[in-house]
Computed example of a mutant assay.
Amino acid sequence: MIVRTLKECQNSERRVVADNWESVRMILKDDKMGFSFHITTIYKGTETHIHYKNHLESVYCMSGEGEIQVVGGETYPIAPGTLYVLDQHDEHYLRAKPGTDMVMACVFNPPLTGAETHDASGVYPLVD
């Protein structure tokens, strides 16, 4: 059994910080669960270009408000209780409204190893 708290993960190398977001990676590839689980905060008033060419992701908004805009497609509002699933490796922009951080619970398949950040194309590398 694996038992971890968000607080202990925040105070470890499992917390990864970038310009527009931070991600606390509570379950990673080394845990051998077949997925990774993260609590990610999208900083207020920011826009992040993301394109997970190597991963599928499910995201549940726990707090804050913003939107997701699919490149060449629709824009969807995000608020607490909203779930979106990037099941087609959807290239998108994720935006948090000014004045409100968005806190999201995220699941990745295949799992992340822990230190990944988006490259210039918004991609996480695939690590075997």
Rank of each mutant, 00 (worst) to 15 (best):
M1R: 10
I2N: 06
V3S: 10
R4Q: 09
R4D: 07
T5V: 10
T5H: 07
L6M: 07
K7Q: 15
C9V: 11
Q10D: 08
Q10G: 07
N11C: 13
S12R: 13
R14D: 11
V16S: 06
V17F: 04
V17Y: 03
V17L: 06
N20W: 02
N20I: 03
E22L: 13
S23R: 11
V24N: 07
V24T: 14
L28H: 01
K32G: 03
M33P: 00
F35D: 01
F37W: 12
T40G: 08
T40V: 13
Y43F: 15
Y43G: 04
T46M: 12
E47L: 06
T48G: 05
T48C: 05
H49D: 12
H49Y: 15
H49I: 08
I50Y: 00
H51A: 11
H51D: 12
H51W: 14
Y52G: 10
K53V: 15
N54I: 10
N54E: 15
H55I: 02
L56G: 04
L56Y: 09
L56Q: 06
V59H: 01
Y60F: 15
M62K: 05
S63V: 11
G64K: 01
G64P: 02
E65Y: 08
E65P: 01
E65T: 14
E65N: 10
Q69D: 03
V71M: 07
V71N: 03
G72D: 14
G73R: 10
E74W: 00
T75M: 04
Y76C: 02
T82F: 01
L83Y: 02
Y84H: 05
Y84G: 00
H89G: 03
H92R: 14
L94N: 04
L94R: 02
R95Q: 12
R95V: 14
A96T: 04
A96V: 06
D101L: 04
V103L: 13
M104F: 08
A105F: 05
V107T: 13
N109D: 05
P110F: 11
L112T: 09
T113R: 13
G114A: 07
T117P: 03
G122N: 11
G122Q: 11
Y124H: 12
Y124K: 03
P125E: 14
L126T: 04
